[in-house]
Write a protein that binds this DNA or RNA. Structure first.
Length: 554
DNA sequence: ATTCATGGCGCC
DNA sequence: AAAGGGCGCCATGAAT
C-alpha cells in the first residue's frame, strides 16, 4: 500500500500495490490519513510504502496514528540499491530516485544551507520532488523500479531481506525516539553528586574537579589547564616526564603523581561535560531520554544518533536508567557477535567449532593459544581489525594456521580494499568506494611500502576488512531487531523497545510480561541467525537480564 | 562571534 | 616494514 501525506494538513492519498509493484484498485483521497492508515492496518496489515519513515511515520504518530507492522522506506532502500549498483553517494530521496528514472537533474539530499526556510520545508515534505510531479505516482513508479533493481542483483533474496530489515529498523527508530529511555533524574543526581560533589550554581566547575585541577597544578609546580594537552605536555616534560601525548594509555604508564590525578580528572570531567546536569536538562524530559536515531547513519549499517550521545552512555551512568514502578528492563546483549559473524560467514570449521560452546574466545584459546584467553581475544580482534603491531602480528600467524578459512575471508576483503575495490556484507550492504584521490597512483612503486599511497591503501584495506564483519553483524542485529519488534507487538502494546546499541537492545515492560519478552528475544535471535546465515551451526545467543536498572544487567 | 581542525574519550 | 575498525561529542586554540 503506497501512501503520501499532504504537505499541509492531515490528509493524504493511498493506493494498493500488487506483487509486481503495479497499482491495484484506485487512489483513495482521505482527509484524515492517520485514521485511514489505522483502518487499513487493522484490516490487512499491508507493507506500507512511503518516501521516508522519518517524515511520514512521525507525522502519522503525531496525528494519533497506529503503529504499523511493516514498511518499505524508499529513501533507505534507494541508499542500499545505490550501493549495490556501485553508485554510492548519489542523492537518495524519492525525488532524486524519480529524477534518475527520468534522466533529469538529481536534487541534492541536503538542502542548501542558508536558503529560504519556506522552500526547504516544502521540499522536505515532498521528498525533493519537483512541483509538477504527482507524489503518489512518483512513489509508485520508484517503488516498482526498486523492486526490479532488487531482483536484478546477485542475491535478490538477501537484498529483499536487507531492505525489509532496514525499513523495519526505521519504524523501530521512530518509535524508540518517541518512547524514550527511562531516565531517573534522582538516580542521576545521586551518581553525579557522589562523583563530582554537589551541583554548582550556574554551570560552574564542580568542587571535585576544581580540587583535582589544583592538585595537578601543585604536583606539576605550575599553573596548567588540565583540559589543554598543549599546556600539559611541556608541564610534564619540565618535571622529567616526557610524553608523546596526554592520552590515558600514555598516562597509565607514568609514575608521576600528576598522572594519576590527571587520569581521574579526565574521567570525571568527561562525565560532567558529556552526561552531567546540563546534558540532562537538554535531553531528558518527563523521565525519558529521547535521542534521535539515524538509521543507516553509518556506512556499515550501524545506526548513529543525533544529539545526546545516546550510543556512548558511560557504563556507570546506566544506573540512572531505571524502569518505571511495576516494570522491568529486559536487557539483551549479543555476546561476541563479531567473531561469531566471522565464523558463520566464512564457514571455517575450526572457528565454528569454537563458537559452538558458550565462550568463543575461551575455545579459541584452548585450540590455539594454550588456554590464554586474553591473547585469543587480541588475536581475533587483530584478525577483524587488521592490527599487525606488537604481538598481534605473531598471533595472527597462529590464527592463519589454525583458522585458515576465516582468515582468508578477512584477508581477501583487505586486499580488495587495498586495490580500491568494494566489499559486501552477508545481506549485500556495499562498502563505499574509496575517494578518488586516495588511489591516484595505483602503480606506485610497491617496493616503497611506506609511501603515502601505500599507507592510504593499507588503511582502506583495514576498513574493508572490518566492513565485512561489522556490516554483517549489523545485518544480523537489524534482522533481530525487526523480528523482536514483531514479537513484542504480538505480546501487546505494553512492552516497548527503548534502546538499541549495535548488538544490544533494551525492552521496557510490565514486570509480569518480562518472561514473555525474554522468550521473544530468544526467538528473535534465532530467527535472525536463520534468515541471515542460513544453515550455519554457529549459535548467536542473546543473553538477557530482567532488571530494574540498566546497570544491573552486567 | 563563529567556524574548523585537533586531541581526546565514551560506546560498540 | 607494516602501528586496530566504526561512530558522536567535548574543550581547546587557531583561523575566519
Amino acid at each position: 500500500m503506497a501512501v503520501v501525506a499532504d504537505p499541509v494538513g492531515s490528509g493524504g492519498r493511498l493506493c494498493g500495490l500488487g506483487e509486481d509493484g503495479g497499482t491495484v484498485g484506485g487512489t483513495a483521497v482521505v482527509a484524515d490519513l492517520a485514521r485511514a492508515v489505522r483502518e487499513v492496518e487493522a484490516a490487512a496489515g499491508p507493507r506500507w510504502v512511503w518516501g521516508g519513515t522519518e517524515e511520514v511515520y512521525q507525522g502519522l504518530l503525531d496525528r494519533g496514528g497506529v503503529r504499523v507492522g511493516r514498511c518499505h522506506d524508499v529513501k533507505l532502500v534507494e541508499s542500499l540499491l545505490l550501493g549495490q549498483e556501485g553508485r554510492h553517494g548519489r542523492p537518495r530521496s524519492l525525488g532524486a530516485a524519480w529524477a534518475r528514472l527520468h534522466g533529469l537533474p538529481e536534487p541534492p539530499d541536503a538542502p542548501e544551507a542558508g536558503g529560504d526556510d519556506q522552500p526547504v520545508l516544502f521540499a522536505a515534505d515532498r521528498h525533493h520532488l519537483p512541483p509538477d510531479a504527482d507524489p503518489l505516482a512518483a512513489l509508485v513508479e520508484v517503488h516498482a523500479a526498486q523492486q526490479r533493481r532488487i531482483g536484478a542483483g546477485d542475491r535478490p533474496d538477501r537484498m529483499r531481506l536487507l531492505c525489509a530489515a532496514e525499513s523495519a529498523g526505521a519504524l523501530a527508530a521512530v518509535e524508540m525516539g518517541r518512547d524514550g529511555l527511562p531516565w531517573s533524574a534522582r538516580a542521576h543526581d545521586e551518581l553525579l553528586t557522589g562523583l563530582l560533589g554537589p551541583r554548582p550554581a550556574g554551570g560552574a566547575r564542580p568542587a571535585r574537579l576544581g580540587e583535582l585541577a589544583q592538585r595537578i597544578q601543585d604536583a606539576l609546580g605550575r599553573p596548567v589547564n588540565p583540559d589543554s594537552p598543549a599546556q600539559l605536555l611541556p608541564a610534564f616534560a619540565r618535571v622529567g616526564v616526557p610524553l608523546a601525548s596526554t592520552r590515558s594509555h600514555e598516562l597509565r604508564k607514568v609514575e608521576h603523581p600528576a598522572a594519576g590525578l590527571l587520569l581521574r580528572y579526565k574521567e570525571l570531567s568527561r562525565i560532567h561535560a558529556a552526561h552531567g546536569w546540563a546534558w540532562r536538562e537538554a535531553w531528558v524530559r518527563d523521565g525519558r531520554f529521547r535521542p534521535e536515531y539515524v538509521v543507516g547513519g553509518v556506512v556499515s549499517g550501524r545506526w548513529a544518533t543525533r544529539g545526546g550521545g545516546a550510543l556512548q552512555i558511560p557504563r556507570p551512568l546506566r544506573a540512572a536508567v531505571v524502569a518505571d514502578p511495576g516494570h522491568l528492563l529486559v536487557v539483551a546483549d549479543a555476546g561476541q557477535l563479531e567473531p561469531r559473524v566471522l565464523a558463520a560467514m566464512s564457514g571455517d570449521q575450526g572457528l565454528a567449532g569454537a563458537a559452538a560452546g558458550g565462550d568463543l574466545y575461551a575455545a579459541v584459546a584452548q585450540d590455539a593459544f594454550g588456554g590464554d584467553r586474553p591473547r585469543a581475544k587480541i588475536a581475533l580482534l587483530a584478525a577483524m581489525y587488521g592490527q599487525t603491531s606488537g604481538e598481534a602480528g605473531q598471533l595472527l600467524a597462529v590464527m592463519r594456521r589454525r583458522f585458515p578459512v576465516a582468515l582468508a575471508l578477512v584477508e581477501a576483503a583487505a586486499r580488495t580494499g587495498e586495490a580500491g575495490g568494494i566489499v559486501r556484507s552477508q545481506l549485500g550492504r556495499t562498502s563505499p568506494a574509496p575517494s578518488a584521490d586516495r588511489f591516484v597512483d595505483e602503480a606506485a612503486d610497491p617496493a616503497d611500502g611506506a609511501s603515502p599511497d601505500r599507507r592510504a591503501a593499507r588503511s582502506w584495506g583495514r576498513f574493508t576488512r572490518n566492513f565485512v564483519i561489522q556490516a554483517s553483524a549489523a545485518d544480523w542485529a537489524l534482522a533481530m531487531l525487526a523480528a523482536l519488534r514483531r514479537e513484542l507487538a504480538a505480546i501487546g502494546s505494553a512492552p516497548r523497545l527503548v534502546f538499541f546499541q549495535h548488538d544490544e537492545v533494551v525492552v521496557h515492560t510490565p514486570a509480569d510480561l518480562a518472561p514473555a519478552v525474554e522468550s521473544a528475544v530468544a526467538a528473535a535471535a534465532d530467527e535472525a541467525r536463520r534468515l541471515v546465515f542460513g544453515a550455519t551451526p554457529v549459535p548467536f545467543p542473546l543473553e538477557t537480564h530482567a532488571v530494574e536498572r540498566y546497570a544491573d544487567a552486567k
